[in-house]
Structure formats: C-alpha cells, structure tokens
C-alpha cells in the first residue's frame, strides 16, 4: 500500500500539536517529558515523509536528518531522566504542584 506523503505530513503535524498540548497541560513531569518525545517523533515522521514526496526538485535525504534527530532525542533522554530521578529523590513526587517553590 502506498501512503500519500501529504497525509503522513498531516499526521506528523497532528502528533506535534498533541505533544505540545501535552507539554502545556499535563501535570506529571514524566508525562510532560514523554510529550516532548512525541514532538520529536513527529519531527522524525515529517522528515521521513519528505523522502517520499514526488514534487521536490531535488531528492531530499530526510531520513538521514531523522537519524540525527533520533541521536539528539537519545541524549536528551539520558540527561532528562537523570534530572527527573534527582527530582523524585528530593521531592518524593514528580507532580508539578509538589515542585513549584522557587517563585514564592
């Protein structure tokens, strides 16, 4: 089955918006972090779909760029989960309500 590249791009845009909404709305920091990953995967989907687009004048190696995005996402996970573990140890919770204290 050949999927139209444009519908894949629409799906990517939808995923990105869902991720962004998750970052803004969800109260659990782990879920917020997962939403960020969802945004990054939307980027990947968009890039990979580019390689299937017929109307581009030059062939685009979107999948090569997607590899770099995967790499960046992996680095972010390594740092981010470490920080979230530190947060959980200090506060005993990963809910936003329990954390905000700096502003006073």
């Amino acid at each position: 089955m050949i999927v139209n590249a444009y519908s894949v791009e629409a799906l990517a845009a939808a995923l990105f918006c869902i991720g962004l909404a998750g970052v803004l709305i969800r109260r659990n920091l782990i879920v917020v972090f997962v939403s960020v990953e969802l945004m990054l995967n939307a980027v990947n989907l968009n890039l990979v779909a580019l390689t299937r687009r017929a109307d581009l004048l030059v062939p685009v190696e979107g999948d090569a760029v997607a590899l770099f995005v995967i790499l960046l996402a992996a680095c972010e996970v390594a740092v981010g989960l470490g920080i979230l573990v530190a947060l959980y140890r200090r506060f005993g919770s990963v809910a936003i309500e329990d954390v905000g204290r700096l502003k006073e």
Binding site: G19, V23, V32, E76, I83, L84, R90
Partner: peptide, 21 residues
C-alpha cells in the same frame, strides 16, 4: 537547584523539539 534544573530542562527540550519541527 533541582526545581530550576527540571524547569530549564523541560522548557529547553520543548524548545529544541519546536526548533527541529
């Protein structure tokens, strides 16, 4: 420190995802 770090990290990660999109 942890609180500021988490805020900084999550906002920074979101910003780089937006940038990549």
């Amino acid at each position: 420190g942890v609180e500021a770090g988490v805020k900084y990290f999550l906002m920074g990660a979101t910003a780089s995802a937006v940038m990549l999109f």
